[in-house]
Nucleic acid binder design. Sequence first.
DNA 1: TATTGTTATACTCTATAACTATA
DNA 2: TATAGTTATAGAGTATAACAATA
Lengths: 148, 148
Amino acid sequence: MTQNIRATSRSLPIALLRARETVMGPLREMLAQSGISEQKWRVLRVLNERGPSEHSSIAAAACLLLPSLTRMLATMETEGLITRASDPTDRRKTLVTISEAGQDLLLAHLAQSNAIFDRLQAQFGRDRLEQLLDLLDDLQKLDLGNKP
Amino acid sequence: MTQNIRATSRSLPIALLRARETVMGPLREMLAQSGISEQKWRVLRVLNERGPSEHSSIAAAACLLLPSLTRMLATMETEGLITRASDPTDRRKTLVTISEAGQDLLLAHLAQSNAIFDRLQAQFGRDRLEQLLDLLDDLQKLDLGNKP
DNA sequence: TATTGTTATACTCTATAACTATA
DNA sequence: TATAGTTATAGAGTATAACAATA
């Protein structure tokens, strides 16, 4: 066993991934029923939260690369989940908007999604969950010299 | 804007992912130099920590599916990073061991990896980082009724 | 009959670069 | 010349199911 290497449970990337896999377990059942991928779910959540948005801004918020997003949005448009229109003030930009059907999809799974969150909160503790979310939010805001 | 839906920054799966992307930024440069994928890196870390391990155990610890792992290990064996041998006490099982070359690869990037961690620790605060790692470790241990 | 792992298959996302169009 | 987004392409990982070997 090599020395000086941090335990994997104290490796932040690995710890974040393991925690995420634990949380995603029950959510994946829900997503399977909804018929959309985890990535598309994030895009809908971001659009619902921010309103009409540019591709770059969606990609950053949903943790996706622009080329991935481009193709996903094309599919989502044919599925009627979003609409696209070019920005009149700068025609290089495209503004993406969540459709009624997209909002309905989010709402249709809201109860189930909240139930999963509540169960997690009950097991983990409300205060500690808030504390964790605060720490994660601060971490995400750090500038580590990437994201150029 | 639909009501009653949690802000994405308070969605645990999204918050975990965004935090992870922030942390992975500088690490990806390191991995690009090492020539192996993020997934293979996790497998090496797990093997280095646990010693000879079965596929199922590696898959769970490195957050990979068994079929993905099977093919990755085949590649890693030809690359000389690991060795495989069937368990003499139960010949269904395969024991995977990190090779010298695999350990050397981890060690070759240890200084760089530690520097990245130290920079993060300096910006985020040592205590808060420890607190975060503790919370993540506890979260990962929860039984949410998945992982059957 | 249950467990461990492999193979097969289809699909999605990732990653990089080259390209278009607008500014 | 820089920016926003698209297209092209290759490849890697994901997800499911079906299968083999062993227990």
